[in-house]
Amino acid sequence: MDNSYIEKTFIEMIQQHERLIYKVCSMYLSEEFPMADLYQEVVYNLWKSFPKFRNESSISTWIYRIALNVCITGMRKELRRPQHVSIVEFEEHFIAPESMEEELKEMYKLIHSLKTLERAIILLYLEEKSYQEIADITGLTLNNVAVKINRIKEKLKKMSNN
């Protein structure tokens, strides 16, 4: 398969799943790791792993897995190094959560107060993934997923009561 074909297929796949990547990144963005940096890092890592993708899982499961992995572990390593690429147009295009409607801002504020792994689970839950899919993506056991979702529910209730 020639390179330009792979690249073309990859770009199409990214375009189809751009919202998914955005949503994962939005869970982990911060002042230190702005959306553009996280997004680029995820796309770059997807590109690196793309030749190894064997259709053993669905494409969205694969993207979730890599994107979450980059956002969670990458935040600790790679992203701490200064980035040298600035794609101005890219930064301009994304809706920054700060400029979103009040109710969405509030939602993100609440999500960001959860722990790193909890954020991943709540994202997948909100994306209507089954417990089994959440377990597959996060690498947790089914029981663990169920327990964690219950805990998150309680946590959210507590937070809203406060």
Partner: peptide, 17 residues
């Protein structure tokens, strides 16, 4: 909101690569 706002074009993805 995101559906209304699809923005990625080939140039942007290439930029990331």
């Amino acid at each position: 909101q995101l559906k209304k706002n699809e923005i990625l074009n080939k140039q942007l993805v290439l930029g990331m690569l």
